[in-house]
Amino acid sequence: MPTAAAPRALIDAASELILGKRSRIELALTCLIAGGHLLIEDVPGTGKTTLAHVLARLFGLDFRRVQFTSDLLPADILGVSVFERDSGGFRFHPGPVFTQVLLADEVNRATPRTQSALLEAMEEHQVSVEGETRRLPEPFFVIATQNPASQIGTYPLPESQLDRFMMRLTMGYPDPAAERALLTGRDRRSLLEDLAPCADAAQLTRWRDEAQALHVADALIDYVQALIAHTRDGGRYRLGLSPRAGLALLAAARAHARVHERSHVLPEDVQAVLPAVALHRLPPLDPLPPDDAARMLLQAVALPH
């Protein structure tokens, strides 16, 4: 197993598979290092599953996928205790949530009850089934997807649940050059199978610890506070960023700085993760296209001197 790889090497490796999406890959990796969960909103076929697969594969992590449907029950995710005649007792059959990377596809198709079962597991890193609490494996990383195009028969995640995702990304269509390379290149699935892990869970934990230990200057905290204050008092949003969102922003900025091999966190790190971390938690008073919304937020707050 290769060790001491740089995060950049992982991004390079993933970019060979997922073409033209380097910034998304970087953010997804940042989210993983920061210990958060990821929500991807996009139409089907834009590489959401591939992204989840690639990340799991590069770290050599277990990967499970659950397709959410309206009849999915909490037990279908968490697991269930079954009576076994041989042993004469109940045995717990763990559900798909007991994995390291979980792809929850079309999470908004399931009922709020099932959604909240997953979201609680995400938050606590443990599940309670029939009175017994079971730890989930570490690392535990959920990539949930939502299809914004078809809203019929769905249960959109409420704001309080959205807040539990550290980041929200959209994949977007590839640019023409990437599209062409995709059309002429090898089959993605076989490429994925050939992909060798560049790191392992221990490496991920190390990066996580290193990100935690990065120097954060007062000036940076000032900046983060100014951003949060702007969302609360700036008059542009119906609801400002929560303290949890503030923590998530700083954690994501630390991870981003670690991905870029910096010894301290820069405003650039905050700005790089800000749209992904903040926009899904900020219901705007007048909706804007995502790019405009991101620019509006970034450019509204001056850096401290």
Partner: peptide, 27 residues
């Protein structure tokens, strides 16, 4: 430091190369 940083801005702003208030130093 802040004064020196503002001085840098004054040196470049007349050429249209000033820093936007929100722009990070490396960017």
């Amino acid at each position: 430091l802040a004064r020196a940083w503002a001085g840098l801005d004054r040196a470049l702003a007349p050429a249209g190369l000033g820093r936007a208030a929100w722009e990070g130093p490396l960017d």
